[in-house]
């Protein structure tokens, strides 16, 4: 493969990333010396116990938190110049937060349409597109409700719809389905995998669920706490498209076991 072509497919390049919150005796090292490169269209999960810096890593990539050391590049553009973020570098990024972060002064469909509104899409078109995406995540009956009137799971779906409505090329998801029941979670995972494959979206997913990580990802990054760091990267060699039956297979079970092993080694 010619060098340039490979360079062209490089989507994310995290190198030597360290983040320390505070200073002196109360300083917390949220992530230490993390390296991660991702190709376009790759699906990577960050798997690790609470407090091992998953959210922090995601926020630095998204341009929300500046790194203490190290660099982050998206398509060759540095996200951070010291502590100054580059808006241009993070333009392809869409992010879904651990909390739904919907705005109570908008209805569900207006919340979902907000990214389009900010991008300058006209009212009629953005509401059409938002409505369509709401329907795919099962919010059809709730379009004109206020977010406060929704259950936690419904809010999380609306938040996912908002993250997808701009058809982003780079999707950062922070425990998106933690609050959902197993069945809805399966359904939304399939939907998510579909969207990502169809549009060749590069995705980083933070999750606590080992089987979710194994099922969705091309690669699982295992993190360990104290000090927070990356301890393993494991490829998930399952063919795509994947269906729920994959989770019953021996190979899948074996992979889940291996991931569990790696996780406990980090403790």
């Amino acid at each position: 493969m010619p060098f340039d072509a490979r360079q062209d497919r490089m989507e994310i390049n995290v190198s030597g990333l360290t983040k320390v919150f505070g200073d002196g005796p109360s300083a917390v090292t949220a992530i230490k010396d993390a390296d991660l490169t991702m190709e376009r269209g790759e699906f990577v999960s960050l798997l690790g116990p609470s407090g091992c810096g998953k959210t922090t890593l995601l926020r630095i990539v998204a341009g929300l938190e500046s790194p203490t050391e190290g660099t982050v590049e998206i398509r060759g553009n540095a996200v951070w110049n010291g502590t100054r973020r580059s808006a241009a570098a993070t333009r392809p990024v869409s992010m879904m937060f651990q909390e739904a972060r919907l705005f109570p002064w908008f209805t569900v469909v207006e919340n979902v349409a907000l990214p389009l509104r900010i991008a300058g899409v006209g009212r009629k078109e953005r509401l059409e597109r938002a409505t369509a995406i709401c329907e795919t995540v099962g919010l059809k009956e709730f379009l004109h409700h206020r977010p406060n009137a929704l259950s936690g799971g419904m809010r999380q779906r609306a938040s996912l719809a908002r993250a997808l409505v701009t058809e982003p090329q780079l999707l950062l998801l922070d425990e998106p389905f933690g609050a959902l029941d197993a069945m809805t979670r399966d359904a939304l995972n399939i939907e998510l995998m579909d969207v990502c494959a169809r549009a060749n979206v590069t995705t980083i997913l933070v999750t606590h669920s080992i089987s979710e990580a194994a099922f969705l990802s091309d690669r699982v990054v295992v993190l360990a706490p104290r000090p927070a760091r990356i301890t393993a990267m494991i490829d998930m060699p399952f063919d795509r498209p994947r269906g729920l039956e994959l989770q019953q297979s021996m190979a899948f079970q074996k992979m889940v076991g291996e991931l569990r092993q790696k996780l406990s080694e980090g403790e």
Partner: peptide
């Protein structure tokens, strides 16, 4: 702050 983050991500 979390609401501001959403607007930062959306490049408002």
């Amino acid at each position: 702050p979390g609401d501001k983050d959403v607007f930062t991500i959306l490049q408002a």
